[in-house]
Structures are given as C-alpha cells and as structure tokens.
C-alpha cells in the first residue's frame, strides 16, 4: 500500500513539475513576445523558450569539476521540491506540509546550490554577479518577510492551504482587499525576486558578462533556465495563494499568476537598471515601509494572540 501511495505521489509530483516548468517556460515566451510588441518588434514565437531549453540540454558544455555539477543540479532541484508543497489551485500534494516559511527556505537552498555551482567555476564575473544577487536578496527578503509575517499574524496559520481556504467566498475575502499595502510591497518584491529590470544587476550582460551564468553553457545553462522558470511559477504561485485567494482550478490559477507576471514584464520593459546598492536601499525604503505599515495595521486590528 505504501509503495502504491508513493508511486501515485511520485507520478503526481512529476506531473506538477512538468506543468510548472511548462507554464514557466510559456510565461517566459509570452513575456518575450510582449516585450517585442512594446518595442514594436514581431518577436519570437511563444514556444521559443521550449526550443531554447531543448537546444541547451542537447548542446555540449564545459564542467569545472564535481562541485560545479553538484551545485548546478542543486540549483534547480530544490525549486522543484519546493513546488511540491505549493497549493496549485485546489490541488496540493502534501496538504499537511504547506508551511510558507519552509517553502521560502527550500527556495533558498536552490540559490545556495546555484551559488556553489557558479562560484566553483572560478570566474570573477560570476563572483561579482553572485555578490550582487545576494545583496539584492538582502534587500527584497526583508519587506517580503514583513508581509509574510503579517499574513501569518492575520490568518493565525502558517499553512498555505489554510490561508487559501480563509479567502474563499468571493473577491471581498481575498487578502488583496484586506491587505492592499502588503500586496503592493510583494508585487515590488516580485520584481526583485525575478531579477527583472530595474533589479537585474546580477545578470547584467554587457557589464559583467551575464554574471553568474558566465561559465554556464549547454545543459548547465538549461538547468539555470529550469530554475528560473520554476521559480517564476513558484513565486507568482505563492503570491496568488497569499493574496488572490488561490483558485478553483488550474487554469484560473495560471491566469492569476499571469496577471501578476504581466505587471512585472511591463515594468521591466520601461525601466533601466539601478545600481546594486541603490536597489538594495530602495527595498529597505518603500517596500519595507509598506510592509511594516501593513504589519502595524494587522496587529492593531488583530490584537494579541492568546498563547
């Protein structure tokens, strides 16, 4: 019985992974198309990212040793693992384990693995890129934490499934209505998490030769692409669950995710790149202010929990 259950979970997990990867790649392709149309170009086909990924996995590459290999595999694997705990629409693979902070920390493992891989390549450009990415992370995680904690306090639960369940019953129950400031902060944070302009310092192509990815080619770059696509799905998915009330089915879930991502793409299309310390301090100003303000409002509303 246990084995059957395990196999069912395994196949479901593969399904979720494939679906999330496909969605992330499709979003990437649509974003390229949108960007092209904003710049009055025709743009690549929607499926371009799938072709790119396929090509990358079938292309030769260089490796700088086992730490490089291990790091880059560890760079996308925890993202897929974290995905298993995310409530996607009505479906959750492990309903009793969808703790939000746990998901966030699993995502950190992916960053740790990616950092280990690219730094093992021994290129200073990747080290500079990594240092920028980490500094940016020190920026955006702080307002994100403020918002997560206010949701914890507001919902009195840490399970994403329960947070979603609390928002059922119409638009007015969504957290976006109840905590608009927090949502605003998180939407800005999403821009930084996805590394879109003005927060794309880490992968500045002309400046530090695409930063962390400088030595990656072929399948390694493909792993980076998988990581980015899954992270895109995961991060927008978390925000949908937190603020947009989840979804009754998968398609509405994706639609809500796309709305979030669409805003990110539009902002990406019109803004230039900030310097890294400006970006970090920006996150410590406006989004953190919004997040803290939201937290204060929530605490004043909710009072003190009885411990």
């Amino acid at each position: 019985m246990v084995i059957v259950e395990f196999l069912i979970k395994l196949s479901q997990g593969f399904g979720i992974g494939a679906l999330a990867l496909a969605t992330g790649l499709l979003f990437g392709g649509i974003a390229r198309k949108i960007m092209a149309r904003i710049q009055r170009r025709y743009g690549p086909p929607f499926t371009q990212n799938f072709m790119d990924l396929f090509k990358l996995l079938s292309k030769g590459s260089v490796s700088h040793g086992w730490a490089f290999d291990l790091g880059l595999v560890a760079g996308f694997v925890p993202m897929l693992a974290a995905l298993m705990f995310l409530p996607i629409g009505p479906f959750t693979l492990f309903p009793s384990d969808s703790s939000l902070i746990m998901i966030v920390y699993l995502m950190m493992m992916a960053y740790l693995g990616m950092a280990m891989g690219v730094l093992a390549s021994g290129n200073p450009n990747s080290a500079i890129g990594m240092s920028r990415a980490l500094m940016l992370m020190a920026g955006y995680e702080v307002p994100f934490a403020a918002v997560i904690f206010s949701i914890y306090f507001f919902s009195k639960t840490g399970y994403l499934t329960q947070i979603v369940a609390m928002q059922s019953g119409g638009f007015m129950n969504w957290n976006i209505v109840k905590m608009p400031l927090g949502f605003l902060a998180v939407e800005i944070v999403l821009q930084g998490m996805l590394g879109e302009k003005p927060f794309d310092q880490a992968i500045a192509p002309a400046e530090i030769a695409s930063g962390p990815m400088v030595e990656l080619g072929g399948k390694y770059l493909g792993f980076g692409m998988i990581q980015h696509s899954v992270a895109l799905f995961l991060e927008t998915g978390i925000i949908v669950d937190l603020f947009l009330g989840g979804a009754p089915n998968f398609w509405i879930f994706i639609a809500k995710q796309f709305v979030l991502y669409f805003v990110v793409v539009l902002v990406d299309a019109i803004l230039p790149r900030l310097r890294v310390h400006e970006a970090t301090s920006f996150f410590w100003k406006l989004p953190l202010f919004l997040g803290i303000l939201q937290a204060v409002i929530v605490i004043i509303q909710g009072g003190v929990l009885n411990v």
């Binding site: 700088h64 290999d69 694997v77 897929l80 399948k219």
Partner: peptide
C-alpha cells in the same frame, strides 16, 4: 516527507544531468 521529496527531486535532477548532452571537463 521533505527529505524524501528533496531526495527524489535530486534523483530526478541527476537523471536529467545524465541524459543531457555530454560535458567536457576543463
């Protein structure tokens, strides 16, 4: 369960690593 999920994901990751195109050690 987290550990098992991570391990299974790693197995999948290494499988993908193995079936992808060859790399050259430099």
């Amino acid at each position: 369960s987290i550990f098992i999920v991570v391990i299974v994901a790693f197995i999948f990751g290494f499988l993908l690593f193995a079936v992808s195109a060859k790399h050259k050690k430099v």
